[in-house]
Design a protein around this nucleic acid. Structure first.
Lengths: 186, 186
DNA sequence: ACCTGAACACCGTTCAAGT
DNA sequence: ACCTGAACACCGTTCAAGT
């Protein structure tokens, strides 16, 4: 009769995500995760191969969440300009709710922390659909890249508190949405 | 007669920047920096208050470098659309030459690693000038934020190897430049 | 004035030993 | 099958002692 197992991979990933959001990347330590789920750090290695893999699992969860939020916000059939706004607003909302998780997904550092890009494929498909409707199939990929670069860059800068010249940041976001929609429609 | 000092703050920052680029953030350890400049790790504390401060000095140097490259690429008097292209191309070049330093400046993580935003002010002024010429004084700030978000987002994604759907990434960059120039000109 | 080794408090990770 | 304490190799940082 094997021991029942005092914790689970789900509880571990959840604890890691909470610690990351509460105390930053350094706060996501194996010892802290263990303490949160009620186990010693070495026991975590029965559930996950190491810290890097755990961080990657957190990132993958976040990427899945982003994907389903973007998909839900901009369902097929929505007029493309409205869909563009809804999709990037969903991304921005996620960034504000879970800034540390957002960084994990979109910050280029930490090679091994990045989730499998496949996970963001559904979100990518939605952005590509919107871009096709706006810019036409010939220019869809370039348009999708322009849109994604702007949206992720804007939210990254906002989270980094990089908008320091005053003014209305919400207005700048709306400005970007409008101008990009026009620009991509060409 | 005081000891001459076997190393210097300049040599330390230079060594830290090289280690960061060569071996990533974890490679920038006090011990490795000490070994590079020919001193034991504790001696570094005579020159710099700690690792976090050292990382910040590396980031500040990188930000200064970005600022002067952008300024030099897009001098006053250049037609605004050409200046826009030149400025963002200079940013992209920097990112490709020093990806780790680019991440230090533009990645939202690592609160304490970010350089004083004041350092990027010259570059910000150049972008704001270009944006004013394109979008007019009323919309200059929004336009500058749109442009900066897109450019930094694009380079970040490129460094993260996030463009995985094939196609020509250079063409997508040029597409972004053209469409943004039109969009900001309104 | 600068540099050193030793020490301290933390990491992540491995592993033999327990249940 | 899972959990543990002990151990190992690393960190950053402090500090008394050397020159």
């Amino acid at each position: 009769m094997p021991a029942p197992g005092r914790t689970s991979i789900d509880a571990i990933v959840r604890a890691a995500a909470e610690l990351l959001e509460a105390n930053g990347p350094d706060g996501l330590s194996m010892q802290a995760v263990g303490a949160t789920v009620g186990v010693r750090a070495p026991s975590l290695y029965k559930h996950v191969p190491g810290r890097a893999a755990l961080v990657r699992l957190v990132a993958a969860d976040a990427a899945r969440d982003i994907g389903s939020r973007v998909d839900a916000a901009a369902p097929p059939g929505m007029p493309p300009r409205a869909a563009l706004g809804a999709a990037v607003r969903a991304l921005r909302s996620f960034g504000r709710e879970r800034p540390a998780a957002f960084r994990l997904v979109f910050s280029p550092g930490d090679e091994e922390a990045r989730p499998d890009p496949e996970i963001l494929r559904r979100a990518a498909a939605t952005v590509l659909r919107i871009s096709t409707e706006l810019a036409g199939p010939e220019r869809a990929l370039e348009a999708a890249r322009t849109l994604t670069a702007w949206a992720s860059g804007f939210v990254s800068m906002e989270l980094a508190d990089a908008f320091r010249m005053g003014g209305d940041v919400d207005a700048a976001f709306d400005f970007g949405i409008e101008r990009l929609a026009e620009a991509l429609a060409g």
